[in-house]
Write a protein that binds this DNA or RNA. Structure first.
Length: 474
DNA sequence: ATGTAC
C-alpha cells in the first residue's frame, strides 16, 4: 500500500497492482470480494493496468466500475469484462424549456404519456420505428439511419446529432454478422427504439450549474433551470446474443490454450485469435446498435415534447457516450485496448480524442444517479490521464434486487419520489411495486461517488440534474 | 442486463 491520499490507493495483490480511486470509507465498504475479483482479472496475460472507480461493486467475472487495459500487440479481449449489456450508455438532450414551464403535474403526466406512446416499455413490445434497416444500423451506427431520423443532419450548424457523440460508427469485419441467427435479427429489429428494463430509464430533468465551472456550462449551452432529457439504455437483445454466442466460443479457446482463473465466469481470448476477433467485431456491431437505439429514443422524445408543448419545443444533442465497452484508444502515442465495465470516459480540455465541438472544454461525461436522485454532467480533468480518463458510471448498487424488495416498503418508495405532492417525480406507470428494486436505497449515495471523483481530480461537476419525471421499463 | 433458466 501507499501514499496518504484518502481518495486513491494502489493495492499490491498477488497477481498485480490494483488502483482504486475512492475515498477510504467507500473503499472499505466495497468488501473483500472485489479484491478477489481484481486478483482474478489481473491474472489475464499481459494486462497493463486495472482500476476501480468509487462506485465499484461485484459483477459477473469482473466488478462493475473496472477499467482494464492491454496493448494492441499482445492484448486480450474479455466478453465478461465488457459484460452482457454491450454498449450500455447515456445520452443527454437539451431543451429550450425552463423547469417552471413543467411545474404543472398534469403537464408532466401528459408528457410522460406521450413518450410512452412512442417508446413502449412493456417487455416484448415492438418499437415505434419500422422503416429502419437493422443491417445498416449494425454496420454503420448512426450513419445507417434514414436521414429523416437525423433532423439536424443538413443544417448549417452541421450534424450535431452525429458529431456530439463518443462514437457514431464502429468499423469492423461485417462478414461476422452472418454468425448471428435469423431469430436474433428479427428480435433486434423489433426492439429498435425500445428502452429495456432494470436500471434503464428516460428522465426529464432540471439543470443547476456549478458556479466553479459556469464557463464550461456556457460553452455547452447549459442554463440554470433548463430542462434536459437523459436516456440510459443499451444494445438490448442483440448485445445479449453477441455476448452469449461469443462467450462459449471464447471458453473453448481458453481451454485449448490452457487459460483460466479461479473464476470460470471470467472469459477472455487473445485479440489475435479467431474467438477474440469474432467477439471484437460483433461487440462493435452491438455498440453501433446501442448508439442508434438511444438516438431513436431521443427522436421519439423530441416528437413527444412537440406534441405536448407545441412545435416550438426543441431538443438538441448534448452528448452520447457509453459505459460498457472495449475499444482501441491512443494514450500518449501508444495504441491500447481499453475495457470499461461500468466506467465512463471523461477526456479533458484539449485532448485530441474529443469531438471537435468539445475540443476546448472536454466532452460532457454523463453520470446517472439512482431513481429519484440527482444525475451529473461532468468534464474530465488532466489528472484523469492516470486512470486512462475513466470515471464512475453512477451510484453503484449496494443491495441486490431481492434484498431491496425485502427492505423497502411501498410507502417509503413512494415518498422518495414525493408521490402525491406538487413536486412529484412523475413516473410512467402506477405499478410502483415492480420498481421497488430500483429505489434509491438499492444504491450508494451518488453525491458521495461524485465527491470521490472530484477529489481524486479525475473530473469536475459542470451541472447537477434534478429529476422531474421518469420513464422506466417493466 | 437479457424475449432470463440446470
Amino acid at each position: 500500500m501507499n501514499s496518504n491520499d484518502p481518495y486513491y490507493r494502489r493495492i499490491d495483490l498477488p497477481a498485480g497492482d490494483l488502483h482504486v480511486f475512492a475515498h477510504d470509507d467507500l473503499f472499505h465498504a466495497m468488501g473483500a470480494k472485489v479484491l478477489e475479483m481484481a486478483n482474478n482479472n489481473l491474472q489475464i496475460p499481459n494486462i497493463r493496468y486495472m482500476s476501480y472507480t468509487p462506485d465499484a461493486h461485484v459483477g459477473v467475472g469482473t466488478c462493475i466500475g473496472t477499467t482494464a487495459v492491454w496493448g494492441t500487440e499482445n492484448g486480450f479481449v474479455s466478453p465478461s469484462i465488457v459484460g452482457s449489456d454491450i454498449g450500455c450508455g447515456m445520452r443527454v438532450h437539451l431543451t429550450n424549456l425552463q423547469a417552471h414551464e413543467l411545474q404543472d403535474v398534469k403537464l408532466r403526466r401528459k408528457l410522460v404519456k406521450a413518450i410512452e406512446k412512442r417508446i413502449p416499455v412493456e417487455n416484448h413490445a415492438r418499437g415505434y420505428f419500422s422503416d429502419i434497416r437493422l443491417e445498416d444500423v449494425l454496420r454503420k451506427g448512426l450513419h445507417g439511419l434514414p436521414g429523416k431520423y437525423v433532423p439536424d443532419m443538413y443544417t448549417p450548424r452541421k450534424a450535431t446529432s452525429l458529431t456530439h457523440v463518443e462514437c457514431s460508427r464502429f468499423r469492423f469485419d461485417e462478414s461476422e454478422l452472418d454468425r448471428i441467427p435469423e431469430q436474433v435479427w428479427h428480435r433486434a429489429h423489433r426492439q429498435l427504439g425500445t428502452l429495456g428494463n432494470g436500471n434503464h430509464f428516460i428522465e426529464i430533468q432540471a439543470l443547476s450549474i456549478n458556479e466553479e465551472n459556469r464557463h464550461i456550462a456556457e460553452r455547452w449551452g447549459l442554463r440554470d433551470g433548463q430542462v434536459a432529457v437523459m436516456i440510459h439504455s443499451g444494445s438490448r437483445a442483440w448485445g445479449g446474443a453477441v455476448n452469449q454466442m461469443c462467450s462459449s466460443q471464447v471458453v473453448k479457446t481458453m481451454s485449448r490454450l490452457g487459460l483460466g482463473t479461479a473464476d470460470p465466469k471470467l472469459t477472455y481470448a487473445p485479440l489475435d485469435s479467431e474467438a477474440g476477433r469474432t467477439y471484437t467485431n460483433l461487440m462493435y456491431s452491438a455498440l453501433n446498435f446501442a448508439v442508434a437505439n438511444r438516438h431513436l429514443m431521443a427522436f421519439a422524445v423530441r416528437d413527444a415534447f412537440k406534441e405536448t408543448l407545441g412545435s416550438k419545443a426543441e431538443l438538441t444533442t448534448l452528448y452520447d457516450l457509453m459505459h460498457n465497452y472495449a475499444c482501441e484508444e491512443s494514450h500518449g502515442d501508444e495504441p491500447l485496448f481499453i475495457h470499461r465495465k461500468g466506467t465512463t470516459r471523461a477526456l479533458p480540455a484539449g485532448h485530441s480524442g474529443n469531438p471537435e465541438p468539445y475540443r476546448d472544454t472536454g466532452h460532457p461525461a454523463l453520470i446517472p444517479g439512482s431513481m429519484g436522485t440527482a444525475s451529473y454532467l461532468m468534464a474530465g480533468l488532466p489528472g484523469g490521464a492516470r486512470n486512462y480518463h475513466s470515471i464512475c458510471h453512477g451510484a453503484g448498487r449496494v443491495r441486490s434486487r431481492n434484498a431491496t424488495k425485502q427492505l423497502v416498503t411501498l410507502d417509503e418508495f413512494a415518498s422518495s419520489l414525493r408521490i402525491g405532492q406538487e413536486d412529484e417525480i412523475v413516473l410512467n406507470h402506477r405499478a410502483l411495486e415492480a420498481l421497488i428494486d430500483e429505489s434509491p436505497q438499492a444504491y450508494k449515495d451518488v453525491d458521495q461517488i461524485i465527491e470521490s471523483v472530484v477529489q481524486a481530480r479525475l473530473a469536475a461537476v459542470v451541472a447537477r440534474c434534478r429529476p422531474l419525471a421518469a420513464v422506466k421499463g417493466v
